[in-house]
Amino acid sequence: MSPSTDSHPTVADPTADWAGVQLHVVTGKGGTGKSTVAAALALALASSGRTVLLCEVEGRQGIARMFDVDPLPYAETKIARGLADDRGHAGSVYALHIDAESALLEYLAMYYRLGRAGKTLDKFGVTEFATTIAPGVRDVLLTGKVFEAVERNSRNKGAMTYDAVVLDAPPTGRIAQFLNVNGELAGLAKVGPIRSQADRVMTLFRSPRTAIHLVTLLEEMPVQETVDGIAELRSIDLPVGAVITNLVRPHELDEEALAAAAERGLDAEDLAADLDRAGLEATDTLVSALLDQAADHATRVELENRQREVVAEAGVPTYTLPQLPGGVDLGGLYELAATLKEQGLGR
């Protein structure tokens, strides 16, 4: 693990899950909670004493919104501290909003000293062209910047280095194409500097230093996408990490009660007696509202269990995050981070 410029020792437990992973890629179906989980994971890692960089590449300023800070520039910005561990160490979370045009200009400036030409390119709409349509160029630039942040080392004086990088990545439908873009360059940039970096990027992405986590809900479509996504990633030798099932609702009934509820076999009189004991007026409407809800709950649990089995068949470690009833604010992110850590992710 690379040393960080913060002078604290790295205290992360080397036997923890994913201990050797420096790049955590978080993907999933749209809206399942990729950004939320990426942020929580970054906080969990920071709460284990690491210095973490959280990157977003979809141009939405989701990180700024979640952490309640101003929109992020194209510069690494410290946005949060992890919780201190037993020994009082706390790492930090830095964030970076990577956009392809800035990455291209940075790239040109760095490798070509194309000061003036770079600006001219921009003026002629070339950067826009290159980053929107030139096939793959956009993804090459985005992944290239992530690669640079992971591989950056302390020889580069004054540069910030990180123990871990967490990427809030494109959705499952595009993730394989996105991460594999450097492996697919053959059809296009056969020569040139973009090409020469490609192999090194693929080496990192295929190595055990990278883990690609998939966020899902326990619902049919997201689980199907997750299973398909895992198969696709495996088929191109990209390292699948964990599945994180998100927005899981607590189960309040034991199996026997669930089975009874599903068949609408819960006893209304017993229920009424209990309600009475609890000091509630056991009206018929209240009793039947509770029984209806029990039936729905049982149906829902059955569906979730079926989906959980489908997820389990993928043979990937699984972590679970609850649905926070009030939505996710900064406090909620810390809560989710703690839940991940308890289960061993980000420890």
Partner: peptide
């Protein structure tokens, strides 16, 4: 001249085939 500069830079980055 501007365009010449542009194409030259593009060629350098992407290669002539692109």
């Amino acid at each position: 001249a501007g365009f010449g500069l542009v194409t030259a830079a593009m060629t350098k980055i992407l290669g002539t085939q692109v």
